[in-house]
Structures are given as structure tokens and as C-alpha cells.
Amino acid sequence: MKCHFSKALELLALCSEHGLSICEITIALEIEETQETREAILGRMIRYFSLMRDSVNKGLAIDGLSPSGLSGGDARKLLAYSQAGAPLFGSQFAKTIAYGFAVLETNAAFGLIVATPTAGSAGVVPACLLSLQETHHLTDEQAAMALLTAGGIGHIIGANASFSGAKGGCQAEIGSASSMAAAAVVEALGGTPEQAVNAAAFSLMNTLGLVCDPIGGYVEVPCVSRNGMFAVHSFLAATMALANTRCVVPFDDVVIAMRDIGRRMPRALKETAEGGLAITPTGLRFHPSHSNISSKQ
């Protein structure tokens, strides 16, 4: 089966031609590219999902601060809040945010994580899928399939733009992660390929322009909180797509817009710690050139 695609338009044409989901077309592409069996590919994804779950659990247990002192212990607080009396919008809302935080806190502590698609955005997809597993009782195999849906969307972004914060700002990282997660959520809930692609478009178009200005060059502030928040963002985009709200700009165009904005974005706001939050009075206290922090390392 010929299953190569680099645009959402081509992916949707393949889905419609074969009557298959994004996930199944992505599996076919992966089989073609790696010459692995379907079972081997699914097995690999189930392993990744299990690593993701471990990285969430590890992060939820973190009680102390990261080596930089910028993060740590907040995933735990969010989890406690989700289990308290009357958490806002119910328990799952705070829990989803906690899971996103947890992966990035594990990362800041040099624990093992799965870059989906990058380390700085690695909390979004696991937070969404683990949350969905709790609310909709997905099996690990269904979660693995959802990871492949996410992979199909990521493949399009990688082919046409970039995941790199240094190249495209945070929109390239968290924007990619949340559009991958949004599409994965839609397909896991039985949505159509069109709805999944629209969810990716909603997610990315509402992330455009986001800069990468991490304090001290550490992937912690604002990255840890951003991962929690953008897990929710993915659910918002999935909700809009499942409700069939109009997606005026197709996903392929949004990806090109993201690439264009990334190219025009000043270097100081692309993972150089030379602008934005990194050079606020607070940010400067953690700047690599600042004596306090260099003595800490």
C-alpha cells in the first residue's frame, strides 16, 4: 500500500481512499520506512507509553527542587488539589495539568522521558493520553494507537516546518505537541480523520507566535507550567473539532504560517535566553552570566 504523505491534504486523501484512520495510515508508513512488522511497531509504542506513564508517576512524587532551584514539587501540589474538596471543573482538570507538570519536573531532574516531539514539550501528549485513559478507559494498545495518530501529525509538521525552539520559538515545540495531542485525543474518541486534523489546526493556530525565552536557559520556567496548560489546550482543540466548529484555515496552511513566524521571530526570543522572561530582573538572577548561578553549578 502506497502511504507516503507530507501534507495533511495527502494524509486525508489516503484515509478516504482506504477508509482508514490517521493512525492506520501512519502505521502503514512506518512499516514501509522501517520494514518492521505492525506488531513490532505497536509494541514499541506501548513501551513508549509505559515510559511516559513512569515519567508522570516519577514527577508526581518529586518533593524537592531541581538543581537550578527553578522548579519541582508543583505537580504534586496540583495532584493534591485535584483530590481536595471541590477542585475547579472537577478532579480531572487539575489532574491533567499535574501530569503535564510531572513530565517536565522529571525532565528537569534528569529522569528518563519520551521526547514528544521534544523534551521541552514532552508533557502534553502523555498528560492527555493518561487523562483520557482514566476517563475513557483506553487500553494501553489504544493509547499506543493514539501515539501513532500523534506521530502522523508530527510527521507533517516535521516535513514542512520544525520542532526546534531555537529555530521556531515555543510555537514549534508546544504548538506541535499540542496539535499532535489534540488529533490523538480525537481519534482515540472515535472522531474522523478530518476532525483530528482540524483539532491539530485549532491547536496550532492558537499557539502561533509563542516565543522561547526560558529563564537561565533552563527548560523549567515557563516550560513546566506551559506543559500542564497546553495539555488542557489540546482538549479544548479536540472539543472544538468534535463539535464540528468551522476550521477556516486548513492545517497545512497553519503549519506554513508557523514556519514563517518562526523565521521572522528575533533570535533573542528563540532559545537563547537573551530576551523575554530570561532578561526580566528575576530572569537575570538565573542567567548563565550571573555569578550566583555559576557558583551553583
Binding site: 528518563l112 522521558i113 516531539p117 526546534s164 531555537a166
Partner: peptide
Amino acid sequence: MVGPSSSHTAG
């Protein structure tokens, strides 16, 4: 992977 950034660490 291990470490803060996929491009700055894993890459």
C-alpha cells in the same frame, strides 16, 4: 531520553 531538551540534550 534524559536531559532538559531534545535538541540541546538528546540531539
